[in-house]
Amino acid sequence: MRTCLVVDDSRVIRKVARRILEDIGFEIAEASDGMEALAWCRAAMPDAVLLDWNMPLMNGVDFLRQLRKEPGGDDPVVVFCSVESDPNSIREALDAGAAEYIMKPFDGDIIEAKFAEAGLL
């Protein structure tokens, strides 16, 4: 089964995302900020990362830039999921290596469509 790391400082968002992603066949791990996510990735690289932007300790973009420097860190397909909807911010996330970008709020259809677009389904 393929794995997806859900990174968000909101427990509620993680729970909602987990339920949607489990329904489309992913095994889920959770992290509440970039530091914790990095620790997960160093232990075992996931196939996908659903990544919030604004988090304490390490934000999403900083995490993504660091991830790409790690051994095997180019492999995970990263989909951002943030309230940030300014086109320049979205471009910054894509430039840092994100495959797709979801603007909150989201629903199951949006996650599924974006994961399909990122080649994950």
Binding site: P87, I110, A113
Partner: peptide, 14 residues
């Protein structure tokens, strides 16, 4: 925002 997230790739949105 809801409509542009149903099927439209983010790069085409930008």
């Amino acid at each position: 925002q809801f409509e542009v997230q149903r099927g439209l790739p983010i790069r085409l949105l930008l």
